[in-house]
Simulated assay, not measured.
Amino acid sequence: MSLASVLAFLGLALLALGWFWPRGLGLGAWLYLGAALADALSKGVFSGPAQPALVLGGLLALRGEALALRPKLSSLRRYLLALALVLGLFALKALPHPRGELPLFLTLFHAGAFLVAYLALAVGVGAGVMCALQDLRLRAHPERALGAPPLWSLRRLERGYLRVGYGAATLGLGSGMAWAFSYFGSPLSLDPKEVSAFLGWLLFTLYFLLEDRLRGRVRAGLLLLAYALLLFAFLGAPFLGSRHPSRLPP
């Protein structure tokens, strides 16, 4: 991987942590800008689409960091962060990716990150679905509140585990893109494993973006669909002729 690709990948990981750690936006933004500078020094200024995407993503992330102390504009901050993440993924696709052997530590990091993600998201999604459905039930029958688990307890479980799981999934997805750099020459392709994992991550990103507006069955359905896509990447894609090394033999 080139220096620009490494910086862009690290910036993407820090921006993903920015959903819960505001300082991650600033650090990720500067890594984006550093990646754009490294690419410009090696290939020329604005010699490809990756540089404008990294510059724009970095500036959007810096603006989002400036809004961290203004709670009333939290929706705008999340929107800017989501745009910066998408621009970073596009830049990783556009940056040069020479083939080569994949280091063992990256393989172990990738597998470990997704293991943590699956475990944490299983708890977080379960608590989130219970919280959303229980909120619906208690709105219709408030008298049942005494015999039901407290909503604040479920919400605390949901937030804590979803944050850990989303961060781990982002690191796993990013390291998987680096894996694809080496094995296939492209970080993203129409492979069932890659597509399902990426769509699951996008839906979790959408969930955090719209978290304050989602209620009831829509909230529960979005969580379940996102986790189902990640599970399909693990359990279903190996049967569909995936190019991933974990595919099952025919």
Rank of each mutant, 00 (worst) to 15 (best):
residue 142 P to V: 05
residue 129 V to Y: 12
residue 124 G to S: 10
residue 131 C to I: 00
residue 108 L to H: 12
residue 113 A to Y: 07
residue 140 A to C: 01
residue 138 L to M: 09
residue 108 L to V: 13
residue 148 A to E: 14
residue 116 V to M: 08
residue 112 G to L: 05
residue 121 L to M: 10
residue 119 L to A: 15
residue 129 V to N: 07
residue 112 G to W: 07
residue 132 A to E: 00
residue 121 L to F: 06
residue 114 F to C: 03
residue 127 A to W: 10
residue 125 V to Y: 11
residue 139 R to Y: 02
residue 109 F to S: 15
residue 144 R to N: 12
residue 114 F to P: 02
residue 107 T to H: 15
residue 118 Y to C: 00
residue 142 P to Q: 01
residue 137 R to T: 08
residue 118 Y to G: 06
residue 136 L to C: 05
residue 113 A to L: 03
residue 144 R to T: 13
residue 112 G to A: 07
residue 118 Y to H: 15
residue 114 F to M: 13
residue 125 V to S: 11
residue 113 A to C: 06
residue 142 P to S: 03
residue 122 A to F: 12
residue 113 A to K: 09
residue 140 A to H: 03
residue 114 F to I: 12
residue 107 T to A: 15
residue 138 L to F: 12
residue 110 H to C: 08
residue 127 A to D: 06
residue 119 L to I: 14
residue 141 H to T: 04
residue 146 L to E: 15
residue 133 L to Y: 00
residue 112 G to R: 07
residue 128 G to K: 05
residue 138 L to G: 07
residue 144 R to W: 15
residue 143 E to Q: 11
residue 120 A to S: 15
residue 144 R to C: 02
residue 113 A to Q: 10
residue 134 Q to N: 13
residue 125 V to H: 05
residue 126 G to K: 11
residue 109 F to Q: 12
residue 121 L to T: 10
residue 145 A to L: 06
residue 125 V to P: 00
residue 114 F to Q: 07
residue 126 G to Y: 07
residue 138 L to N: 04
residue 111 A to M: 13
residue 120 A to E: 10
residue 113 A to H: 01
residue 115 L to N: 07
residue 118 Y to W: 13
residue 112 G to E: 09
residue 119 L to R: 11
residue 116 V to Y: 07
residue 129 V to C: 09
residue 136 L to P: 00
residue 139 R to W: 05
residue 117 A to L: 06
residue 125 V to M: 08
residue 126 G to N: 10
residue 107 T to L: 15
residue 123 V to N: 03
residue 148 A to Y: 13
residue 122 A to H: 02
residue 134 Q to F: 11
residue 142 P to Y: 03
residue 117 A to F: 02
residue 143 E to F: 00
residue 133 L to F: 01
residue 108 L to S: 12
residue 126 G to Q: 09
residue 131 C to S: 14
residue 126 G to H: 10
residue 124 G to M: 12
residue 108 L to M: 12
residue 118 Y to I: 09
residue 123 V to Q: 04
residue 148 A to T: 15
residue 147 G to K: 00
residue 140 A to E: 14
residue 142 P to A: 02
residue 117 A to S: 14
residue 145 A to D: 02
residue 145 A to T: 04
residue 135 D to W: 01
residue 146 L to K: 12
residue 110 H to T: 09
residue 110 H to R: 10
residue 116 V to G: 08
residue 128 G to H: 05
residue 130 M to E: 04
residue 131 C to D: 13
residue 147 G to H: 02
